[in-house]
């Protein structure tokens, strides 16, 4: 995939970090405000996709990126199931909210909910990015 014009590259360089941070913010505040793991993950994936679209990528490094993204996706899912299993082992019920609940409306509240959001965020961000790369990879096959 070839990159785009210089204007796009410069603007992307400026905004891509902010988009990423915004995604992280949405994930971390998922238990307080609208949004959460899925929405934040989509925003993070958007930042990654934007970077690829603006700067272009060689097929070889795209393949490597896809492998890494799919490893992160598995990691997110494992984290999520791990939290559920921790509830089973610590408290005897699957998905038990075993952490202290904290003060409502504070960042540190909600027990396992923020952790679940982080796991979902990783999973969705990496997953959507993998889907994008996989669909882009089919294009290469067609061009051959």
């Amino acid at each position: 995939m070839r990159g785009m014009s210089l204007v796009v590259k410069v603007v992307t360089n400026i905004v891509v970090g902010f988009i990423f941070i915004y995604g992280v913010y949405i994930i971390l505040h998922g238990h307080l405000t609208p949004g959460g793991g899925f929405a934040g993950g989509v925003i993070i994936a958007g930042a990654l996709v934007l970077r690829i679209l603006a700067f272009g990528v060689e097929p070889v490094s795209e393949k490597r990126a896809e492998e890494r993204a799919s490893a992160f996706e598995s990691l997110g899912a494992l984290l999520f199931i791990g939290i559920a299993f921790a509830g089973l082992i610590i408290g005897g019920a699957f998905f038990l909210n075993f952490l202290p609940q904290g003060t409502p409306l504070r960042l540190l509240s909600g027990g396992i909910i923020p952790l679940c959001n982080i796991a979902i965020g990783i999973k969705v961000g990496a997953g959507l990015f993998t889907i994008f790369l996989a669909l882009a990879a089919i294009k290469y096959v067609m061009e051959d």
């Binding site: 490893a71 494992l78 019920a93 699957f94």
Partner: peptide, 20 residues
């Protein structure tokens, strides 16, 4: 401790361990 979640949690766990 109940066994019922294991029915679907074990294959899910396996499914995401396998890519790693």
């Amino acid at each position: 401790m109940t066994i019922i979640p294991l029915y679907f949690a074990i294959p899910l766990l396996a499914a995401f361990l396998i890519p790693v």
